[in-house]
């Protein structure tokens, strides 16, 4: 069985190449270190309109991803959207009066939640709710308002 040695070496190289490719896909193409939103603490926020926000959309603070949207619900008493976010536990010092707004990345890009820290001494904990929110800017509404204001002049 002379040839079996070279077969084994080749198969070894092949498996290493395959694993290296998988590793590259995991580390370099996707971002394995990025927070995936599974083991964070939950905070909620109510919005009048969430536009195109989706589950797994990023939650950022000063442009850094600190969490992800984990659930989107609808409160049928007050007709508002209830968004649950899962925040990376490393960021456990968000002030209680933090505000949340829904932004759009670029003109037509996807939507995300931007948090802005307040000045309170106490921090948001698991299950808390953000009081200050600003809804998504809906492009069509904006254009509508612009046209109306032009007509008023």
């Amino acid at each position: 069985m002379m040839q079996s040695r070279s077969v084994q070496i080749w198969v070894g190289l092949f498996v290493i190449a395959g694993m290296a490719a998988l590793l590259m896909l995991a580390m370099k193409v996707s971002n394995i270190r990025a927070f995936s939103g599974e083991e964070g603490y939950a905070i909620t926020a109510r919005f009048e309109n969430i536009g195109g926000l989706k589950v797994r959309s990023p939650v950022t603070m000063a442009g850094v991803v600190v969490g992800r949207v984990s659930k989107i619900g609808f409160d049928k008493e007050i007709y508002e959207a209830v968004v649950t976010m899962s925040i990376d536990p490393r960021y456990d010092n968000l002030p209680e009066d933090t505000s949340a707004s829904i932004f759009t990345a670029g003109l037509l890009g996807e939507q995300y939640i931007g948090l802005e820290a307040g000045g309170a001494e106490t921090y948001l904990r698991d299950g808390d709710r953000i009081q200050l929110t600003q809804s998504a800017v809906i492009l069509e509404q904006l254009i509508g308002q612009f046209l109306v204001s032009q007509a008023d002049k």
Binding site: L25, A26, S30, N31
Partner: peptide, 15 residues
Amino acid sequence: MQAKVDLYEDIANGV
């Protein structure tokens, strides 16, 4: 690429 490609959604499903 890293921001948009998800390890579970995309890579794992592809595998």
